[in-house]
Design a protein around this nucleic acid. Sequence first.
DNA 1: AGGTATTCACATGAAACTATTCTCTGAGTTAGG
DNA 2: TAACTCAGAGAATAGTTTCATGTGAATACCTGT
Length: 402
Amino acid sequence: MEAIASNIFSQHINKPSLFKNKNILNSTFIPPKISFRDVEIEQAVSVLSPALRNYKPNNIFIYGTCGTGKTVVVKYVLNQLEALGKNNIKTVYVNCKMKRVADTEYRLLACLLRELGVTVPDTGLPTDVLYRRFFEKVDSKQHIVLIVLDEIDTLFNKVGDEFLYNLIRINNELKNAHISIVGITNNLSFREGLDVRIRSSLGEEEILFKPYNAIQLKNILSERIAEGFCENVVSEDVLGRCAALAAQEHGDARRALDMLRTAGELAERMGDTEITDTHVDLAEKKIDLDRVVETIKAQPKQSQAVLCAIMALEKQSNGKWSDSRLLTGNVFLKYKEIVKNNGLRALTQRRISDLIGELDMLGVITAKVISKGRYGRTREISLAMADELKDKVKATLWERFL
DNA sequence: AGGTATTCACATGAAACTATTCTCTGAGTTAGG
DNA sequence: TAACTCAGAGAATAGTTTCATGTGAATACCTGT
């Protein structure tokens, strides 16, 4: 066994890697030193430092678009704080966006409790029981609990503001402990939608993260490149290009890193010893392509069937039949056909309407509500994909349904 | 011609239902003393 | 009598269905000129 395996893999093992340490090129990696965020770090530190003297720090709200370093900074600061605060400070980080982890009130609580060392079942318990257990656990000793709710807006949009209200209320009733909430969101107008009481309580302090500019991105990237890639793999040109591309995308450092890493992987796979512009271009395309294909694959069957119907219709209407335009009604008919051929249960048109809306949200299709006057109101649907991607998606769906 | 009123084909909302998974509780059962 | 088993009541959640109401503008229908 060993001998065979070494035969198969030896070629790959011996091939020199372009990477020195791939982890560093991951956007979730927390570097020992964070550049261009001194002001924000200082702000966070000054707000949180009372915790070290056993006072409750103010709640903080952190804003900033994608890839501006919010999460990294918060984690960085909290790590240090927790290290210094010994047993008196407990920090809990929860990403509210994680599907099936913390995307409902119950699961958020369960997640918090788990972080505090209490295991609770995934289901079967009333939510208020969890609140009670949470309360008891937190209040069981004199300490400060910092709760970080990342992507708090997604949870809010799903379940409303009840959980925030409850957390604040709990804080008021605690005898021994204190909890402070750090809310992170990339939705700059999130505050507006909040109840006044919650807004004033939660937004005691606010920190805004501005996007990186191209020069800063370049710096950040080169720091990581130095640690992550081997010497001479990434040229100055390529670096500049990645930074420029990401700067266009509102200074998204995460994107820049992903792009660089993927470019590296591609180059490695192609047997090149250096990353070139070609690799970067390919990487950029691949990231988008993969993202869409993955999201489609992850969609439930019914949703895929709807997309399949849309694509099938689109093909037809390219011919001549200009009246089989992509409208909800037509899609529904086609969908029923497809579903019937595949032995699936047909859903209501109401539901299909929602599914179309969801596909639109995912960015797979564009669905615009139009009024055709006397002839009703409906959605006009079009595919929002590059041809290359379209073929890829079709291949997946066709195989499945046709 | 100009102005209303209709009307279509869905959109959009709210509520209720279904199915699944899982806990908790207490009644009934069992086995050991 | 303590430990165990098991059915039933309840919860949380995702995914739907049902019922109800909303809606923008191309037409049909009037109206007075």
